[in-house]
């Protein structure tokens, strides 16, 4: 079981962003992609989720053998793909509870209704774990949230939706150390044999709290190096310039 990206090429307008990405994330593993700004690492996560701005010109993405590219954005989500956004969007007037409820409801067969008591019970449990105030359930999604609150909220959504493959795009950016620890606690609690993770990050800092099984380095639309945790340490010590050597 794995998320497999094979020779993926993609462009936005006339600019080629991905130039043949190869990557396999088996369930049970956490992979990290590091790379300089503009290397295409954030774009990769959006393309995996089906963002309309990008056109896939060649290559394949499969999830446990299923062709991902032929699915719509929402179908990919319901099939088990989750993206924690670098910049989570605000949804004015829609409470966190209603948003999550709608997302879970969308996963049920027609005619079936969510059990409200069970839903709140589960949500409160996970909020307590993420040290989130229960008042958050009534606040509009991400509206007026601090950077840290938004990121915690992404992790809460991830925990509630129970995906098979989790993509986290620069989840560490803009987080103070306490918030980072909470986010890492959430991710680590979800580590499982039947779940894979892809962490996209600019810095090693996040990887000190979420230990990856593999580290990949992306540059100019391709994966240029792959290795273990030591690769992240090298990058941290020498900077991205070491790629040129």
């Amino acid at each position: 079981m794995s998320l497999v990206i094979n020779n993926l090429h993609a462009k936005i307008a006339d600019t080629e962003i991905l130039k043949g990405v190869n990557l396999e994330i088996p369930t049970g593993e956490i992979h990290a992609i590091m790379g300089p700004n503009g290397s295409g690492k954030s774009t990769l996560s959006k393309i995996i989720c089906g963002h309309e701005d990008y056109e896939v010109t060649a290559g394949t993405i499969t999830m446990d053998g299923q062709d991902v590219l032929e699915l719509d954005v929402d179908e990919r989500s319901r099939a088990g793909l989750f993206l924690a956004f670098q910049y989570p969007m605000e949804v004015p007037g829609v409470s966190n509870a209603n948003f999550l409820r709608a997302a879970l409801q969308a996963r049920l067969p027609k005619g079936e209704e969510i059990d409200a008591v069970k839903f709140y019970h589960t949500m409160y449990e996970k909020m307590d774990f993420l040290e989130m105030d229960r008042k958050f359930t009534g606040r509009a999604v991400n509206e007026g949230f601090s950077g840290g609150e938004k990121k915690r909220n992404e992790i809460l959504q991830m925990m509630m939706l129970d995906p098979r493959y989790c993509l986290l795009d620069e989840t560490d950016s803009g987080l103070d150390i306490d918030a980072l620890k909470v986010v890492a606690k959430g991710v680590n609690s979800m580590r499982a044999e039947n779940r894979g993770f892809l962490l996209i990050t600019h810095y090693q800092r996040l990887l000190d709290y979420i230990k990856p099984d593999k580290v990949h380095v992306m540059a100019d639309g391709q994966i240029v190096r792959s290795g273990g945790f030591e690769l992240a340490e090298t990058l941290e010590a020498e900077g991205y310039d070491f790629l040129k050597s």
Binding site: H51, V73, R78, F82, L83, M89, V91, N98
Partner: peptide, 19 residues
């Protein structure tokens, strides 16, 4: 905003209704 909501599993119509 639509992409965000759809990424959580809502189809376009459901996302629009919610918004």
């Amino acid at each position: 905003m639509l992409f965000y909501m759809q990424q959580r599993g809502l189809n376009e119509g459901e996302a629009m209704s919610l918004a």
